[in-house]
Amino acid sequence: MILLVLSGILALAVAGCVCVVWAARGGPRWVRAVATVTLLAGDLVRTEQRRGRSLDRGTTDGDG
């Protein structure tokens, strides 16, 4: 079951990347919409990773 879910997530990620490339070449409107959603999702993940790292740094007290 977990393999099926991970395969689906991988397929969505690959499809999103394909849409980003296609949109850069002037694809149809729906491709540009999917590309925008894909790029926004990537920015959101990147922002959350940065926020998590800054929180990790803030909790260390330097004693370890």
Rank of each mutant, 00 (worst) to 15 (best):
S7C: 11
G8Q: 02
T36S: 05
C19K: 03
G52T: 09
V20I: 10
Q49Y: 00
G16H: 00
A13H: 03
D56C: 08
L4D: 15
V34S: 00
G8D: 01
T59M: 13
W30F: 07
V21P: 04
G16D: 02
C19H: 11
Q49K: 05
V37C: 05
Q49M: 04
T36N: 07
R51W: 15
L40D: 01
A11I: 15
Q49L: 13
T60M: 14
D61N: 13
V45A: 09
T59R: 14
R46G: 03
V20D: 02
A11F: 07
G8W: 00
L3K: 13
A33N: 13
G16M: 03
V21A: 15
V31P: 05
D43Y: 13
R32F: 04
L3D: 15
R57Y: 13
L3N: 13
A13I: 06
V20A: 01
G26P: 11
S7T: 10
A15S: 12
R50V: 13
G27D: 08
S54Y: 04
R32W: 08
W30H: 08
L44K: 02
V18N: 04
I9V: 14
C17H: 09
A33V: 08
L55D: 09
R57V: 03
A11G: 05
R29L: 14
M1N: 12
Q49A: 08
W22F: 09
D56N: 06
A41Q: 12
V18C: 06
L3V: 15
G8R: 05
G52V: 09
R53F: 11
A35D: 06
A23S: 03
C19A: 12
L40S: 10
A24Y: 05
D43S: 14
R46N: 04
G58S: 11
A13G: 02
L55F: 09
P28C: 13
M1D: 11
A35H: 01
G26T: 10
I9M: 15
W30G: 00
A41K: 07
V21W: 08
W30R: 00
V14A: 12
P28A: 15
P28M: 10
D61Q: 06
L39P: 01
R32E: 13
T47D: 01
R46S: 03
V20M: 03
L3H: 08
V45N: 05
A33D: 07
R46K: 05
G16P: 01
L55H: 06
R29E: 11
T59Q: 14
D61G: 14
L44P: 01
D43L: 15
Q49N: 01
R32Y: 00
V18L: 07
T47G: 06
A33W: 04
A35V: 00
D56G: 07
V20E: 08
